[in-house]
Nucleic acid binder design. Structure first.
Lengths: 336, 336
DNA sequence: CTGAAAGCGCTTACAG
DNA sequence: CTGAAAGCGCTTACAG
């Protein structure tokens, strides 16, 4: 109960009457060590609450067993309420922990692409999980050039090879639109994220397909784009209401933008969902607490986080590049 | 542009024609090194994009320059929408980075108190920032016993010494209540977090003081407690409405609970703010997007994060224990 | 199956 | 002001 001088494998070695090599191997469960020797050593380690020195292991093995979660969500000049990022971080953290990896959080300025060296060349992390939305392509390009291991949340560019996890955006757009059609809406608007993003194009594809399958066509007056921020949601919604005053439903590409859109709709004296039905995207925790509670497309965020962690580790250890798309589902609440 | 074999200080030493010791000292800006030697070495390092090996430094210096952000917010069994934790994490991350510290995110099970060994004894982190709400006292007790350096968000226990940062809870409660009095409310309820928490008691103190200063007394029928979760907000609000059907205002101890409370108020056919005014607490990013936008008490979250980072580092480096309380302000929107 | 020894890339007394 | 050397605590070829 006094001092506990068992701080290193050398201490354990002394206690067990073996060499450091043997202790190291026993602790790492090497098949080289005899079963009863191994058990004896591990028992001693347990009794003394031995915790291995991570820095020494890292230095010796030349890897950190740590990955960086890269976001600009809370960079001082780009602070946005990135609830989605937070929710996925929980899943990633769990997935990493299950594989004995730690998670470092790195907040970057999206205009600056050279941040990776600072983490990779110092040996601080073995790889990156890219959540940053703004200018994602330029960050990816840079990481590829420097040969840094990473995985991204989002759709991989067609001509490049790197692991990724994404939601099924096409199905998301289709499910949302079909629901609005099924509930009798006639003039269904599309309020997208940035038009140049593949995710948004796929959601639009789902929207357009659902319309077509019910014998309708997409009307340009019913289309507008924001940038996923809530303020842009308000702007785009006003635009839609101006272009197409007769709209009676809108599929919005994010919950945050949907909340603002509902606000604008009400400002103009129309009710949600009676006059205009609204479907969001993401099913963030706030979706169920909005007024009215938001009908939305749920992405399985914990699963996404777990896969981001697992697949990056798989890539690090075996070079396997996996690109997966996770299923989405429609959550019907009160707004549509 | 081909291979860059400048990976270690030995490489730099060779290039500069000096010893590794000198390079190390130059890079660490030691006053021992001649100014022009120092400049020459640093220039070479810059030219070759040299990044020091962190594991080696850690091993040698016996500290990691990394701190752990401890939360149970997204532990698998305790997943809650801890927006507050996310927002403060941004500030902490910035504050740490400014002091050359990294941030590791640790998700713990609140029932388990032995997690600290795994991070401290392995040398992974130098200290902890405790955000965990549930069972905070038992975690603090454990950290104190093992002599682990940490700082907590919240009010420090009176009989113990450790650094902390907290909001000015008394003023928060007073400001909220005074606003409701000023706007003519007669029957003002208090919907608190857990009654046993000092934060909550102080907010109640502010509430009670404001009432007293305007010549009123707190009415037990107007008091109820939740546990900061949104569901508990609904339960407590129902209780209040049952106990005191004539209430015309409520001060709720968190924005998340306030959102649910507004929902319950409306369910019972009453309007916010016409029939019942609602003031929240925290000013999370969702507060401005709720319907109606929430009047609330803002805590300066970025500042709180920065101070948590700075003061922990100060404690690590100099043993200085600071306990600070940061100012709060009333944000008037539509709900009260 | 086990051990002695080298090596990972730094920092820092110690000596000059 | 600068360098040679030891040391931080591991892992892992190499030898037995």
């Amino acid at each position: 109960m006094s001092k506990k001088p068992v701080k290193t494998i050398a201490d354990i070695a002394r206690l067990a009457g073996v060499s450091k090599s043997t202790v190291s191997r026993a602790l790492n469960d090497s098949p080289l060590i005899g079963i009863e020797t191994k058990e004896r050593i591990r028992k001693i380690a347990r009794q003394h609450d031995f915790q291995i020195n991570v820095a020494a292991r890292q230095l010796s093995m030349k890897r950190s067993n740590t990955i960086a979660f890269v976001t600009h969500a809370y960079h001082k000049e780009f602070s946005v309420a990135d609830l989605f990022g937070l929710e996925i971080m929980g899943g990633i953290s769990l997935g990493l922990h299950a594989n004995s990896y730690d998670m470092l959080v790195v907040h970057v300025d999206p205009r600056e692409t050279a941040w990776a060296h600072e983490y990779l060349d110092t040996g601080r992390v073995d790889g990156f999980i890219l959540m940053t939305a703004t200018r994602k392509q330029s960050h990816i390009k840079y990481l590829l050039e420097m040969g840094a291991p990473f995985i991204v949340w989002g759709i991989p560019a067609a001509n490049q090879s790197y692991p990724s996890v994404t939601g099924d955006n096409f199905s998301g757009g289709k499910l949302a639109t079909e629901h609005l059609i099924r509930t009798g809406r006639k003039r269904i608007a599309f309020l997208g994220g940035p038009a140049e993003e593949l995710e948004v194009q796929l959601r639009y594809g789902g929207y357009e397909t659902a319309l077509r399958e019910s014998g309708r066509r997409a009307d340009p007056a019913l289309i507008a784009y924001g940038d996923f921020s809530n303020t842009s949601g308000a702007v785009a919604m006003r635009q839609l209401l101006g272009q197409a005053p007769d709209l009676d439903a809108v599929f919005v590409n994010s919950d945050l933008m949907a909340l603002e859109a509902m606000e604008v709709i009400r400002e103009q004296g129309r009710r949600v969902p009676e006059d205009v039905a609204v479907v969001g995207y993401d099913d963030l925790s706030i979706a169920q607490h909005s007024n009215p509670p938001l009908t939305t497309i749920r992405q399985n965020i914990p699963l996404a986080g777990k896969l981001l962690a697992q697949n990056l580790i798989q890539y690090l250890q075996a070079g396997v590049v996996t690109n997966v798309s996770i299923p989405v589902e429609l959550i019907v609440r009160k707004s549509a």
